[in-house]
């Protein structure tokens, strides 16, 4: 066991963890933050995507020990985030989710696209989404939702 201290959704957390414990299992099983889902455990599907130090990362292939000192933000930590509020509204309006299993990871990636690439066109959006697999929606609503949030942010001058 190794002692680690990190911030999770803004709160300081200190725990002993087995070095082999991956971040997503640590969050789910030890911190009871079950919003982040697991779909493959080899970095491909994107279901486990969350933010480490402000940037999207795969929590299935990150080890909790290696996140000592880091700041981790899971889907539960985005409740009041303004961009996420817009994205949630758009995902709902465009039917961008069905079973919802990919959705937390999808939203974290979508938020990254909206904030990092405010001028992305649809082709670029699709490319940036290619690391998040959804088996239900065919991505139609997801792409539309992201396009609509980006357009709304642009027209309101909110798109930085």
């Amino acid at each position: 066991m190794t002692r680690i201290a990190l911030k999770v959704n803004g709160q300081a957390v200190e725990r002993d963890v087995a070095p082999r414990r991956n971040l997503v299992d640590f969050l789910r099983d030890e911190l009871n933050l079950t919003g982040t889902n697991v779909g493959c455990e080899h970095g491909v599907c994107g279901a486990c995507t969350l933010e480490i130090d402000g940037a999207p990362a795969r929590s299935c292939i990150a080890f909790a020990v290696a996140c000592d000192g880091a700041s981790v933000r899971t889907i539960e930590g985005f409740d009041d985030d303004p961009v996420m509020i817009e994205l949630r509204a758009a995902f709902n309006a465009e039917h961008a989710l069905q079973c919802g299993y990919c959705t937390p990871g999808m939203l974290v990636t979508a938020r990254d696209i909206v904030t990092r690439l405010p001028d992305a066109d649809e082709a670029r959006i699709r490319e940036e989404l290619s690391g998040n697999l959804c088996r239900c929606t065919g991505y139609v609503g997801i792409v539309r939702a992201i396009v609509s949030v980006m357009a709304a942010r642009k027209s309101s001058g909110g798109g930085r």
Binding site: T36, N92, C99, T103
Partner: peptide, 16 residues
Amino acid sequence: RKEDDRLMRGRGDYVA
């Protein structure tokens, strides 16, 4: 959809 809100906020209730 009524079910979206919980699923979008990480409050889905999957078996795991």
